[in-house]
Design a protein around this nucleic acid. Structure first.
Lengths: 211, 211
DNA sequence: GTCTATAGTCTGATAGAC
DNA sequence: GTCTATCAGACTATAGAC
């Protein structure tokens, strides 16, 4: 026996077409509102207004404000996973030296952040990050680290004591430094300086380590 | 003509002694409440209760909830500045090779985060970070970078193209990686692994760079 | 005079009736 | 889908305590 459905969630998915569009309209509106007002002042009323809906209707598509935020954030993460995967696949056939795949990876990651740095900042810094989000995030990082590890292991010119650990460090550094850069100079994210500095740092690390 | 003073803010500072104590009592209570409940559920009512005061009294000492949070956070930052300064001063007389001052600096910074990781997480991740806070934070980082730059310049065995930039990278990496570690494994912050991994990374960077 | 406690007001998230 | 009601929590005004 199914448990009582939560209020406002339609039992069956209705007109798929229209509903999907409305849902997307809410998400787009929320992205604009959060970008402009930030998290706290990005009220559900404003989101509803921007989506040309009433508050109640918004709550028909999302159980609460944070779930809108979460959806937006998860979409960003998925985009990131995809972008990094694509960038690595593109160089996968060429030689596997870090000097070659690192710029692609770092560049892809930086690109991703250059689109709407302000929204990104709101999403990842100003807003609360529920455990569910952190989990997904960490999962994404683990996936990235696995991919990196493959590259590390396949390069005979490297002699790493612990490729698994090195891969995690590589991902952590890219993640941290790109994010930090975004939050401090939003206008300048795709500067080649950023990319090359990170690449230099990591190449030095990978080539030097003999533990 | 002075503008109307905001309500509840005493015009002149009163009995310094008692007032200072009360203020501190509120801060201590807030630290406990935020640690236990997080930012959102760390309500002013709970803080007042934990401080054995009424809400109104709390608002006599702080204009709003966020200013309590801000005070707490700034105190943390000041502690950090001091700890790092102390750690660097301690090694300042010995040779200036990064292999020597980096462990001290990274260790001091990691230590700082091992005291109350949960509170730290609430303060720096879960809570809103007003521009004022970010400014202070960046100032602190600049100071640290200046100190690091001195070390870099005074070591003849290094041949850096741009010591200023390298110093910034060093500080950014330490900051980012320690923070990331705190948020992911709060129980394990002062693990020597963390410190040595960061030191290895940075030493490699500093010794390899020839731009 | 200087604080404190109590009892509000106000805003924004969420629920429920149409 | 809309509109209105409810609730929580930040903040405020004020009467009285020390």
């Amino acid at each position: 026996m199914p448990s009582r459905p939560s209020p406002h969630q339609p039992r069956k998915t209705p007109q798929q077409q229209r509903a999907r569009q409305t849902r997307q309209r809410i998400l787009d509106a929320a992205a604009r509102v959060f970008t402009e007002y930030g998290y706290a002042a990005g009220t559900t009323d404003r989101i509803a207004e921007a989506a040309k809906l009433s508050v109640g209707s918004v709550y028909q598509y999302f159980p609460n404000k944070d779930s809108i935020l979460l959806t937006l954030t998860l979409a960003h993460i998925d985009e990131g996973i995809e972008a990094v995967r694509a960038s690595l696949t593109a160089v996968a056939t060429s030689p596997v030296r870090p000097e070659q795949w690192l710029p692609a990876m770092v560049g892809a990651y930086a690109d991703l952040h250059s689109h709407n740095p302000r929204l990104h900042k709101v999403l990842f810094e100003e807003s609360p990050r529920p455990p569910e989000l952190l989990d997904r995030f960490h999962q994404a990082e683990r996936d990235a680290a696995d991919a990196v590890e493959q590259f590390l292991r396949s390069d005979p010119s490297l002699d790493l004591a612990d490729p698994t650990r090195s891969a995690r460090v590589v991902v952590a550094v890219i993640e941290s430094l790109v994010h930090r850069f975004v939050s401090q100079r939003p206008d300048d994210v795709d500067s080649p300086h950023l990319t090359s500095e990170i690449v230099d740092l990591l190449v030095a690390y990978l080539r030097a380590e003999r533990v």
